[in-house]
């Protein structure tokens, strides 16, 4: 019994990581209807960026991410403005294929620069610290921080979207691109800001990716799939739904792993397919589409 309760708790905490992966994807889709096949690779790229900043300046990863965030905001802004804005339109193919190409470029670029070796963000004692909950169950500090950060990111994104002028512009642009321009919204710029913001979320996701486990240049696509599954399970259009989706996925994986360690990933995918079969619009769909 304790074993399963432990699996559930660890699963919820893992869900925090997946919610962080998913929040960026959800933001991109929410504002510019962009489905970014390079999303996982961008998270890995950001992890390497944090690693580089940390080792260059001898910083703690938590400090390094603060330095990396403005850099990644600019990278995201420029990527959208220079490349991805050109792909958006009625045709689905260009954004999909361009981000697919980007995925291959990032993976292989990272392989060339950093080799295929596994890396990890080192944060000292906090990495192994845990809080005992009694009954033989303990939660790691880093997994707990991950979940809390996911919640903080979602609160922050909701604040931006629903309480600020730029958030109004995001939603207006998503509703009606043409009329948004009539309001004086420069959509190319708004999309670039959205991507910059998505990169900030990606940086935070990358921090916890690197703190919780090893990473190497090839693990991006799997992260894309987890992010995507969390978004679909949660239902499109709500950041809180994305958190719920991440948690469902995390719990499915942890419970699968308890049954047989080889089934962890498969169990997550199967949970996704079951949700898709039973509730194709996700668990918490937005009322209007």
């Amino acid at each position: 019994m304790t074993d399963w309760l432990d699996a559930l708790i660890q699963g919820v905490l893992l869900g925090g990581l997946y919610a962080l992966f998913a929040a960026g994807l959800s933001l991109m889709f929410g504002v510019m209807r962009l489905v970014n096949l390079a999303h996982g690779d961008l998270i890995v790229l950001a992890a390497f960026a944090i690693l580089t900043v940390a080792s260059t300046f001898g910083l703690d990863p938590f400090a390094a991410v603060v330095l990396a965030i403005p850099i990644l905001f600019v990278v995201g802004f420029v990527l959208q403005h220079v490349l991805l804005n050109r792909t958006l339109g009625r045709d689905l193919l260009p954004p999909l294929l361009v981000t697919f190409g980007l995925s291959i470029i990032i993976q292989n670029g990272l392989l060339q620069v950093f080799s295929a070796d596994s890396q990890r963000l080192r944060a000292g004692a906090i990495e192994t610290a845990s809080i005992p909950l009694g009954g033989g169950i303990a939660v790691g500090v880093v997994p707990l921080l991950t979940l809390m950060s996911a919640i903080a990111v979602i609160v922050f994104l909701n604040f931006i979207f629903y309480r600020t002028p730029v958030g109004r512009a995001f939603r207006a642009t998503s509703d009606d691109l043409e009329v948004a321009q009539l309001m004086g919204v420069d959509v190319n710029r708004i999309f670039a800001v959205a991507m910059g913001l998505a990169f900030v979320v990606i940086a935070i996701a990358a921090l916890y990716l690197g703190l919780r486990a090893n990473f190497d240049p090839t693990i991006g696509p799997a992260r894309l799939l987890y992010a995507f599954e969390a978004v679909i399970i949660g239902g499109l259009g709500s950041f809180w739904g994305t958190l719920a989706g991440g948690i469902v996925l995390g719990v499915a994986q942890t419970i699968g792993a308890r049954i047989d360690p080889e089934w962890q990933i498969l169990a997550g995918h199967l949970a996704f397919l079951v949700v898709l079969a039973v509730r194709p619009r996700g668990l918490f769909p937005r009322a209007q589409d």
């Binding site: 109004r168 939603r171 998503s174 509703d175 009606d176 209007q288």
Partner: peptide, 11 residues
């Protein structure tokens, strides 16, 4: 003021 009003539904 566009034809058909075209208000933003999520605002």
């Amino acid at each position: 003021v566009p034809e058909g009003r075209r208000l933003f539904p999520s605002l």
